[in-house]
Amino acid sequence: MPAPAPAPSGTYYANCDDVRAHGAAPIHPGDPGFRDAFDRDDDGVGCE
């Protein structure tokens, strides 16, 4: 099953430390600011 398209937003996180600093971790596909790079183990949960 294909991953959901990212939500349109101006949200950008530089890295997982940035995601955590903004209280957005864990981050999932479709969440504002999500990028595939955040989900290194491809389990659908980023910055865990």
Rank of each mutant, 00 (worst) to 15 (best):
S9P: 02
S9K: 04
N15T: 02
R40T: 15
H22M: 01
A14H: 07
Y13I: 05
V45F: 05
D18Y: 09
G46S: 06
V19R: 06
G46M: 02
P8Q: 09
P26S: 07
D18K: 01
P6C: 06
N15W: 02
P2M: 13
A14E: 14
D31I: 05
P6M: 08
H28Q: 13
P4W: 15
R40S: 11
D17C: 06
V45D: 00
R35V: 15
H28L: 15
P32R: 00
D42V: 04
R35I: 12
Y13W: 11
V19G: 07
N15M: 00
R20Y: 02
F38D: 01
P32Y: 03
N15L: 02
P32E: 05
G44H: 11
G33Q: 12
D31C: 04
H22Y: 08
E48N: 13
D36M: 06
D31E: 12
V45K: 12
G33Y: 02
N15A: 03
P29M: 00
R40Q: 14
I27N: 09
H28A: 09
F34H: 11
R20S: 08
H28V: 08
R35W: 04
T11E: 11
M1I: 13
A5T: 09
A5M: 08
A37P: 00
G23C: 10
Y13A: 03
N15H: 05
A37V: 05
G30L: 15
M1V: 10
D41M: 04
G23Y: 03
H28K: 15
G44A: 12
C16F: 09
A37M: 04
A3Q: 13
F38M: 08
P26E: 11
D18C: 07
D43G: 08
Y12S: 03
A14W: 00
V45R: 12
P26K: 05
A24R: 14
G30A: 15
R20M: 05
I27L: 09
A37I: 01
G10I: 01
A7P: 01
P26Y: 09
D31F: 05
P2S: 15
P2G: 05
C16N: 14
E48G: 15
P4D: 11
I27V: 14
A21D: 07
D39S: 07
Y13P: 02
C47P: 03
S9Q: 04
Y12Q: 09
H22K: 14
G44W: 10
P32L: 01
S9G: 13
P6S: 07
M1G: 09
D18N: 12
A14Q: 13
D36E: 12
V45T: 14
T11Q: 10
A7M: 15
G23K: 04
P2L: 15
A5R: 14
D17P: 06
H22T: 00
G46D: 08
D18V: 10
C47E: 07
S9D: 11
P8F: 10
D17M: 13
R40G: 10
G30S: 15
C16L: 10
G10W: 06
P29Q: 06
P32W: 01
G44E: 10
Y13N: 09
T11R: 15
H28C: 11
P29C: 04
D18S: 08
P29F: 06
G44L: 10
N15C: 00
F38K: 09
F38G: 03
Y13G: 01
G46F: 01
D39Q: 12
A21M: 06
P29R: 06
D31L: 06
